[in-house]
């Protein structure tokens, strides 16, 4: 059974006929341990889809199953939300407490975890995101990247199986972005399913699978490589190649042969080196 199953899901914000549906009967499923990127231009329904995946929104039609549990069932909603943790875009608007450790403890406190176990989870989660030394720091004084790592720690403390990032890096500087993505990559290697909503094509290159949305419909579902190779889909989804991909395409177009299909900077450098030899 797939970990997440989206079956014929439609979603409409206001119950009026004039407004277009944010999502139009889409279906897909995600297996445990996958690293999926969700892309598309603003207003395509990415964030709506994210909020449907952990029961913050209830689908207008169709069903969303997370680990087999229906997200529109009120009684099991907290089970869904604790399994599918979510990190939002603005680091300032998702911190509940003034002190870092109190914020990380918020999730497990809500779940009614034993105090001694909470302390352990807080320590473990902070260690996992590399923020142990900031345990008693004032959250508002941290940098954006650090705040987002705290937010991830807050999700980890609930022992989730799925991590949903809703443009979690879009307000960060390049360093913060890199820190957050390396933490996310590590989480994924530890077996947590990652769903990353992003505009950044370098982040897409990190994932194993991309789902591209346009006007509430899925227009692409495949590997990043396949997406980057298809100029037509990139154009339709209003997407751009990552810098590495752009460089590769330009090289190929000017007649330099690049054999592999890498999207990694270092590997590409190596290949260029090989072709020049």
């Amino acid at each position: 059974m797939p970990q997440i199953e989206v079956k014929n899901v439609g979603f409409q914000y206001a119950k009026s006929e004039e407004r277009d549906s944010a999502l139009k009967r889409i279906s897909f499923s995600i297996e445990k341990g996958e690293f999926v990127s969700l892309v598309g231009k603003n207003g395509c329904g990415k964030s709506t889809l994210a909020k449907l995946l952990n029961g913050l929104f209830e689908p207008s039609e169709g069903t969303v199953l997370v680990t087999g549990v229906d997200t529109s069932n009120e009684d099991t909603i907290f089970e869904v939300r604790s399994k599918a943790g979510m990190v939002f875009q603005n680091p300032d608007n998702q911190m509940v407490a003034t002190i870092v450790e109190d914020d990380v403890a918020f999730g497990p406190e809500n779940l009614g975890v034993e105090p001694s176990e909470i302390v352990k989870r807080v320590d473990d989660s902070l260690a996992a995101v590399g923020m142990t030394e900031y345990k008693t720091a004032t959250a508002s004084r941290l940098s954006g990247g650090q705040k987002q790592r705290i937010a991830i720690a807050g999700v980890l403390a609930m022992k989730p199986e799925i991590l949903i990032l809703d443009e979690a890096t879009s307000m960060l500087d390049p360093d913060g972005r890199e820190d957050v993505m390396s933490v996310v990559k590590k989480m994924n290697e530890d077996g947590i399913t990652v769903i990353n909503i992003t505009h950044d094509m370098s982040e897409v290159a990190l994932s194993q699978r991309v789902i591209a949305l346009k006007e509430g419909e899925i227009i692409f579902d495949g590997t990043p490589k396949a997406l980057f190779d298809s100029t037509e889909i990139l154009k339709r989804a209003n997407l751009d190649l990552p810098p590495v991909g752009k460089l590769k395409r330009t090289l190929v177009e000017s007649g330099i042969k690049i054999e592999g299909d890498t999207l990694d900077e270092d590997e590409l450098a190596e290949e260029i080196w090989q072709s020049l030899k």
Partner: peptide, 26 residues
């Protein structure tokens, strides 16, 4: 706007004002 986003973030982290809630520090 912040309040709105915070409400989502709190919901996402299973906030509910029930008796079940515990405290890290006693």
């Amino acid at each position: 706007r912040r309040a709105d986003e915070l409400a989502f973030a709190m919901d996402a982290r299973c906030y509910n004002a029930t008796e079940k809630r515990t405290k890290m520090r006693k």
